[in-house]
Each structure stands twice: as C-alpha cells, then as structure tokens.
Amino acid sequence: MLQITCPHCGARAESEFHNGGEAHIERPKDPAALTDAEWAEFVFLRDNPKGLLLERWNHTQGCRRWFNVARDTVTYEILAVYPMGSQPPALDPRRYV
C-alpha cells in the first residue's frame, strides 16, 4: 500500500485517498468554440504513460481536499505533491524502454 503525504494532514495510508485521474486537464473556458472532437478529447481521452504521471488525489477519508501528485507508474514512487492550481515542479520525465 502506498503512503501518500497529504499537504494538509501529512503522511497517510493510500486507503484514505481517492485517485481522481490525470491532473492539469482544464475544462474548456469557451465550450461553444469547441468541435465535437475537441470535446471528446476533453471528456474521454487521458494519457496512460509508462513513467511520470501527474494526477489528482483527494484525501477522501481525511480533510477531503484535492491536490496534485507526480507519480512514477512503473515504480509507484511519489515524486512530488503540490497544490491544485499550481504547476508541477521540474521533474525528470523518466524514460523506460
């Protein structure tokens, strides 16, 4: 089980958290300007990289607040935790063959 450091509560077991999928998916500001394909991209399509993934997590069983996590999908190592609305810290993209 992963240990995730909630920026508000500290290190807690993964079972207290809920994964909210890929981070930095911005909801289009001007919906009318989008084509169907662009909407489909926003609603349905997400990256599934081998290596560095930026994702949202919610501390469901704790403070219930959302935050961002940079995680390696191969080793599950958590590389950074940073607040909603901010950009991720500079991270090595981690390439796997």
Binding site: G20, R27, R56, W66
Partner: peptide, 13 residues
C-alpha cells in the same frame, strides 16, 4: 458531494 468538491477545487476555483 465529491463531484461538487472536485468542481470547486479543480475546475472553478
């Protein structure tokens, strides 16, 4: 509730 919290935190802060 989770969806409302998500919208306020991530979509319309």
């Amino acid at each position: 509730l989770s969806q409302l919290e998500f919208l306020l935190a991530a979509v319309w802060p």
